[in-house]
Simulated scan of single mutants.
Amino acid sequence: MATTRMALRMALAIVLASAASAKKPIPRGCPTGTPNNTYANPALPLPYDGYLPAIDNETMFLHNTRHAGGAVNNVNAILARYPTLRDSVSLSELVSRIGLKTFDKKYGIAANDSTALRSNAGSAINHALFWRIMTTYNTSRPADHLKPELAGHIAAAWGSPTGLLDALRAAGASVFGSGWAWLVYFPDAAQKPLAIVTTPNQDNPLMAAHVARASRGVPLLGVDVWEHAYYLRYRNLRTTYLAQWVSLVDWAMVQRNYDLAVAGAIDSLYC
């Protein structure tokens, strides 16, 4: 357990060290940054109707602008009360450490704001990854994008990319209520490097204070199983949604996220 925690800290060291050493305010040179050092809701890679037939355009509009966009607005409103935190800590570091007693105490974060940041900053990061991991329906082939190392890890754990997606669908279907299913990378070489885990609500595998040790790692691929992600088209049929959603996975982005994680970094949207 201690080895896993240490390895994860090392894997995130580049991100955390750069945030800690940056001059205030952090120049958020990334898709989620704004000139006044707040966060913006990242644009979708495709038009709202670009996810058909798996996800309808109304769902994508509401999901992006109302649900994810609302979370980003909430993050900015909370961080306005903590300018030192806002200007010196990246969103990825905040999500990784929110709720830890030493972190909350250092920045004087009130308990209710810590809870709110857990949910809203988690939502902002989760959705940023979710948008970026999807592409046009049934156009991305694993064989065209996966390098031998990642393909080998997937084959060892699930037999094939199809087996991985089947396991991810099963995990997503098993979530009680709202949450996410993830493909996670573990930096600890002493254990299997990849696993599928689930988190409730808007929790993220980066969250040291809120996620079980066995589920802590760097998310490479995540699927939203909140009802707002699928209800307009599929009603309560989450398994049908998941069966369609896997055809949106952008394997080039899965490989990119893996390469970043192995190097100890996180996607640039997590700035």
Rank of each mutant, 00 (worst) to 15 (best):
G29W: 08
A17E: 12
R216W: 00
N36L: 09
T59S: 15
W180I: 02
Y230N: 14
H127M: 14
N36D: 15
V15S: 14
V95M: 08
A214D: 10
A229G: 10
S88E: 11
P31E: 01
S21E: 14
Y39I: 05
N112F: 12
P161L: 04
V246Q: 14
L129C: 04
A171C: 00
H153Y: 14
A155N: 09
P25D: 00
N57C: 08
M253F: 08
N41K: 06
N76V: 08
M134G: 04
L100S: 11
S21F: 14
A80L: 07
S174I: 06
A20M: 12
P187E: 05
A209E: 01
P35L: 15
F186S: 12
V184F: 03
N138C: 04
P142D: 03
W180R: 06
N257A: 10
V95Y: 00
N37D: 12
I14Q: 07
L146D: 08
K23W: 01
P25G: 03
I125C: 11
N112K: 13
A11G: 15
A181M: 01
N257K: 10
W245S: 09
V225E: 04
I266F: 05
N57V: 10
Y234L: 12
A43E: 14
A190W: 03
M134S: 03
K24E: 15
Y230T: 10
N64D: 05
A110L: 13
K192L: 10
L206Y: 05
L248I: 04
R256F: 09
R256T: 11
R5F: 09
S92R: 06
L94I: 10
T32D: 03
L194K: 06
I125H: 03
T4Q: 12
A68Y: 05
G159D: 00
V95D: 04
N201V: 00
F130K: 00
T59E: 11
I14P: 05
N236I: 05
F130P: 00
V89D: 02
A189F: 06
R66H: 10
R66L: 13
M134L: 13
P45E: 08
W180C: 02
P42L: 07
L44S: 12
T239F: 06
A77T: 15
I14W: 03
P83G: 10
T239N: 10
S21D: 13
V249D: 07
G29R: 13
H210A: 02
A2L: 13
G33C: 11
L100M: 14
L164T: 01
N120W: 01
R169A: 13
A155I: 02
A54Q: 07
D188R: 06
W180D: 02
L165F: 09
I266Q: 12
S247H: 14
H153Q: 13
P25F: 05
I125Y: 08
L117W: 02
N57T: 09
V218G: 03
N204R: 01
A243Q: 13
H153R: 07
